Simulated scan of single mutants.
Amino acid sequence: MSPDLPDDTARAAGAWLAHLAAERRLSPKTVEAYARDLRQFLAFLGTHLDAPPTLAALRCLTPLNLRAFLAARRREGIGSRSLMRQLAALRSFAKHLERGGEASASAFAAVRSPKVARGLPKPLTAAAARAAANPDSRAGEEKEPWILLRDAAVLALLYGSGLRIGEALSLTRAAAPVGGADSVTVTGKGGKTRTVPVLPQVARAIADYIAACPYHLPAEGPLFVGARGGALSPRIVQLAMQHLRGALGLPDTATPHALRHSFATHLLGRGGDLRAIQELLGHASLSTTQVYTKVDATRLLAAYDAAHPRA
C-alpha cells in the first residue's frame, strides 16, 4: 500500500490483503487489483474529506461519500464492470474491518452496485475455430515455423479443451498432455484445479510444437515460451489471433477467449450436458454456464430466419 497512508489504515489494509491471499486463496493478480482499488479509494478520501483516511475517518463514512467516489471514477471514464469490481473490493475491506471491530460495513452495503449490461458471448463457427488452430492459416507471415506451431498449439488448447488463456500459459512442460495423455489438469480462478480432456489432434499440435521448439523446456518450466525462451505473454497470443482475423476474415470479436466460448457453445449445440460443460469450464455457478443456452437459442433463431420460407 501507499507509504502516505496513516499507520492504522496501512496496517489494516495489509492484514486484509494477507487474508485474501492466505485464507481466501485469491490469485496474486486479484489481490493486486483489490489493493489498487483500495489505494484509489483512500487517495480519493484524503482529498474529498480534506483529512487523512484514518480508521476513525472510515468509521464515519456515509453512503454519500461512497457515491461521490463512484461518480468521480465514472467521470474518469471507468466502466460499470470495473466500478462493480471496485465496490466489491471496498465491501470486502469494510467487512474485514467490521469483523475486527474497527469499523462498520453498513455504508458500503447501502450503496447499490452499478448495473452491467451483459452481452452474449460471441463464439466462432466450428470451421473458423478449427482454422484458427491450424498453423497453415498463417503460412504467409514472416514467422519462424516453431512460433507458428506454438501459437497453433495454444489456440488448439483454448478451443479443444475450453481453457482460459492464463490457464494454458501456466502449464509446465511436465504437465504437457503428450505421450498418450488424454487429459490435462489446470489451475483456474480462485486456485481451483480441474482436469479436462485433450483431443488427439490437440495433443499432436502440442507435440509438434515441443519437437520444433529450439529451447530446452525444463520439466517445471513453462510449456509455452516466447521468442527468447522466457514464459509466453498472453499479449503474444492475442496478437496471433489479431493476425488470424485478417488472414481468415474473422470479426473483431474473434479473440483467444472467443475460442473458449466456441468450445462451450459447440458442445451445447451437439447435445452436451450443461452440468458437464460447467465442470469443464471451471465455472463456480451454473448460472454462468447457462448464458451459452441463450447463445445457442439465438443461433437457432438466426438460422430459422435465414432459411425458413415463411420467416
Rank of each mutant, 00 (worst) to 15 (best):
G226F: 10
R260M: 05
D136G: 06
P63H: 05
P222L: 08
L158T: 04
A307C: 10
N134C: 13
R228S: 13
G160Q: 02
Y292C: 13
V116W: 07
R228N: 10
A203M: 06
R245G: 12
P52H: 10
R118Y: 10
F108W: 15
A152V: 06
D136E: 15
A264T: 06
K192F: 14
L239Q: 08
L61K: 01
L20P: 12
G229H: 06
S262C: 04
V202R: 01
P145M: 01
T172N: 07
V291I: 15
Y159S: 10
A126D: 09
L20C: 14
R74M: 11
I277H: 07
A117N: 09
R99T: 13
A57R: 13
M1G: 14
L239P: 00
A12W: 02
D8T: 06
Q201R: 03
D273L: 03
R67Y: 04
H283G: 09
R36W: 13
A132T: 09
R74P: 07
K189R: 12
S285V: 00
L149S: 10
L90W: 13
T172I: 01
L169W: 11
R235V: 14
A174E: 14
A297H: 04
A126Y: 00
G249V: 08
D37A: 04
R235H: 12
A247G: 02
A276Q: 08
A89N: 05
R150T: 11
L64P: 00
Y34F: 05
R73C: 14
V186M: 09
M1R: 00
N134F: 02
L259P: 11
D296K: 00
S27Q: 04
Y215N: 05
M241P: 10
G100Y: 00
L124C: 07
F44P: 10
A240L: 00
I206A: 11
S287E: 13
A152E: 08
G226P: 11
P218I: 10
R74C: 13
D305Y: 05
P135F: 12
V111R: 02
T9P: 13
A297Y: 08
G140S: 14
A12H: 04
R99V: 13
P28L: 08
L268M: 09
A51F: 01
A18T: 13
P114L: 06
R25M: 13
R99C: 14
L45E: 11
V196S: 13
T47R: 11
E220H: 11
Y209P: 12
A43I: 01
S80W: 00
D182F: 02
R36N: 15
A284V: 09
L158Q: 01
A212H: 12
A311P: 12
K294W: 05
A68F: 02
G229D: 12
L199S: 15
A205S: 15
G140P: 00
A131W: 06
T172Y: 03
F108N: 10
A306S: 10
R299N: 07
Q86F: 01
R112V: 05
R310A: 15
L97I: 11
M1N: 03
A89Y: 03
I236K: 04
R81V: 15
A57F: 01
L163N: 08
A311V: 09
P222D: 12
G179Q: 06
I277D: 07
A219D: 15
S161H: 04
P197G: 12
G282T: 03
H283A: 10
R39H: 14
V154A: 07
R85N: 11
N134T: 09
